[in-house]
Design a protein around this nucleic acid. Sequence first.
DNA 1: CGGGGGGTTGATCTCCTTCAATCAACGTGG
DNA 2: CCACGTTGATTGAAGGAGATCAACCCCCCG
Lengths: 251, 251
Amino acid sequence: MLNERSLSVTQECGDCPIRHRAVCARCEADELVKLDEIKYYRRFEAGQTVIWSGDRMDFVGSVVSGIATLTQTMEDGRTQMVGLLLPSDFVGRPGRSAAAYDVVATTDLVMCCFRKAPFEDMMATTPHIAQRLLEMTLDELDAAREWMLVLGRKTAREKIASLLSIIARRDATLHLQHADRTEGALVFDLPLTREAMADYLGLTLETVSRQISALKKDGVILLEGKRHVTIPDMARLMEEAGDDADGGVFA
Amino acid sequence: MLNERSLSVTQECGDCPIRHRAVCARCEADELVKLDEIKYYRRFEAGQTVIWSGDRMDFVGSVVSGIATLTQTMEDGRTQMVGLLLPSDFVGRPGRSAAAYDVVATTDLVMCCFRKAPFEDMMATTPHIAQRLLEMTLDELDAAREWMLVLGRKTAREKIASLLSIIARRDATLHLQHADRTEGALVFDLPLTREAMADYLGLTLETVSRQISALKKDGVILLEGKRHVTIPDMARLMEEAGDDADGGVFA
DNA sequence: CGGGGGGTTGATCTCCTTCAATCAACGTGG
DNA sequence: CCACGTTGATTGAAGGAGATCAACCCCCCG
């Protein structure tokens, strides 16, 4: 019956919520038809592992809904998150047969998948796909480099503020339909546990907890429960993050 | 007369040392001819800034020889290196008009450049270029993610060992002609100052200095002068880096 | 000889980790 | 309905890895 539900989620590309942001964004109608033929949906429950690093990976795909993480682990168990996958983000690398990272669903997750071989064939014949994938990869590279600054040079407080501002911004662009802007204030739910945040930021979960409490005490953020965040003043948060407060996204 | 020398360095693509690794690697003879027409060489001296973050950037290009760094700087002066550009690496992002990072030549540098507009035209008509650029970008993304683990989770000693092993490996693949393998031992010159290493690793230069001394004292590396490094046992170094010693490059 | 860039080393300090106790929310079975 | 375990989170106390501040060295070059 999970399959039953998964059928109900299957849909025409035309109705797809990530139609204009995913790897297929640039495709024409006829190209979409071809993609439609080789695509299939997969669903994962919160906490489930999509794939383990090193495992054979014979598909690629896009996150349709939900959130997943990309993490690396050292032998002694230290882990570092290296990517946060939101709807429209791409998973997998054409031309590589084994997964490079652990991919874990942090919420219930729906992915639109393609077997690797047919997808690579399509890439070869459909420049629109390769073009879009290049663009997305360049964006990810920029994000990764931004994150290198966070990891290498920012204090714990700045790291938390950076993460919050990134989530807030991504969230805001992702669904402007939500009335989650109460006169300038940004409101959202943290999609990550304290531990996941720590893995993202290269901190311990205790430090994450402490710094969130501190930001709350200082009025930089408001907390309802453990996950529901309100940011009364985005510029203030960006200052705390050590970023230029002018909202400049082009680093 | 710097121009004189720069002419002497200008060459046919066929003779180019990075012909098979750069963005043009996949190009056919006729495609190379077209690239040849729009390319031009630029030389920079050690220490010179190629471009400042935020500056208008109307070219893209490849490093032909020498080494450059990509760095990000916060308002208060903290800096983080986010890329180390070796021969064949690509600089600039098609579709973006301003530089995202500071690019600085750390040694004398020769770049093979293309004005952005003609290059983008060629990308649109020459799939081989876009294909190769995608591949290179995916490789850089992997490298960036590897580095996120280093920055976020490794100790100072592990960071130094990681950097040394990366340089050693890159160096080894770059010029196998050099007889710089004395029966299993790797030998190379550090292309970076202690300060640049610190910027790469998210450390202070003092810590870099101390950890290098420590690795030397423990026999993990041998030092002649301040820059000339010998690695008697690569597996040992990889252990110190916290990596699996099996030389596994596919993370 | 003086000066400056790059590098090393020492002493102290501090921010974050580590270890540990506690708590709230939730589910489960007796 | 309550005892119990679990999971995620908060908070406290203590320790340590790396930052900071500072002195000094080496070598090259004018």
